[in-house]
């Protein structure tokens, strides 16, 4: 009997753990590969060092010529004139340069090859990790609290439902208000891909989780992020990046704290449209 009970508990524990933990794992796994892919791409073409701030700048990074002779005399002999050409300064200015500002005096500071580390990136990058997982309650604690939890759960569910029913009209109004506020706020940060050939196909969706002060609790994520950021369609990739950039740049989101529960999680659909919508 004891064995059966223990077995039941252990199984229940595993299931419970799985239900709570697995969704997080799956979302973490999705995001993890993205960084390395970018790094691989970079390593291909440069000798970029690790994406982390290196404490000491590697001396003489001696850029390897990974792309050698990319430009090998792009055009042959410059402008072979077919016939003796009369120069007509009054028609074409002889100025070979675009009328740009006079050379802005090459920054005179000779690059002092000081061996000491050049500003090793003070602010250790604010690593935006997914929420730290809440400390998992031990089985004993759970057991101890169970009976209370059951009662509370019932109560809160009932209360929740009641409140929801009572405030239906009110809540929808608030939702609409929040949507308008968010739309106008995000429009300012978002650079639309209007110039792309098929803007209709460049809709991307983003899920944000905000804290009460309107800051992102973690990096924004595109639904289908891996597919979009590795898409063979460069316009789609850029549309994805622009959405991510907008979400970050738009912080903090000025939204009413009293309605926090409604805007804690936001799903944004960015879809460029020539005529608005």
């Amino acid at each position: 009997m004891r064995g059966l009970v223990l077995s039941l508990f252990v199984h229940a524990g595993i299931i419970a753990g799985g239900l709570i933990y697995l969704p997080r794992v799956s979302s973490m796994l999705e995001s993890a590969p993205i960084v390395p892919i970018e790094l691989v791409t970079l390593a291909d073409t440069t000798n970029v060092r690790a994406a982390r701030p290196d404490p000491e700048p590697v001396e003489e990074a001696a850029p390897e010529e990974t792309i050698d002779d990319v430009i090998a005399e792009p055009e042959g002999a410059p402008a072979p004139e077919p016939e003796p050409v009369e120069t007509e300064p009054e028609i074409i200015d002889a100025e070979p340069e675009t009328p740009a500002a006079p050379d802005p005096e090459p920054v005179a500071e000779a690059p002092e090859p000081e061996p000491e580390p050049v500003a090793p990136d003070p602010a250790p990058r604010p690593e935006r990790r997914p929420d730290p997982q809440p400390a998992e309650p031990s089985l004993n604690d759970m057991l101890g609290d169970l009976s209370r939890s059951v009662a509370e759960t019932r109560d809160s569910q009932a209360a929740d439902e009641g409140a929801r029913r009572a405030a239906v009209g009110n809540g929808e109004e608030m939702t609409a208000t929040l949507q308008v506020m968010l739309r106008s706020h995000l429009s300012r940060c978002w650079r639309a891909s209007l110039d792309a050939p098929e803007p209709d196909e460049l809709a991307v969706q983003l899920v944000l989780t905000l804290d009460r002060s309107g800051e992102l609790t973690g990096p924004p994520r595109l639904s289908d992020q891996a597919r979009i950021l590795n898409s063979p369609n460069p316009y789609l990739r850029v549309a994805g990046e622009r959405a991510l950039r907008a979400a970050v740049q738009c912080q903090p989101y000025p939204l009413p704290p009293e309605a926090y529960s409604q805007w804690r999680q936001i799903e944004v659909n960015f879809s460029p449209s020539l005529y608005g919508g």
């Binding site: 639309a192 799903e267 460029p272």
Partner: peptide, 20 residues
């Protein structure tokens, strides 16, 4: 219960106008 609260609907917003 915890699964249900996790699955609370996010606020949905459609943005079609961006800055140019």
């Amino acid at each position: 219960w915890s699964a249900a609260s996790d699955a609370q609907e996010p606020l949905r917003v459609d943005v079609t106008q961006g800055n140019l």
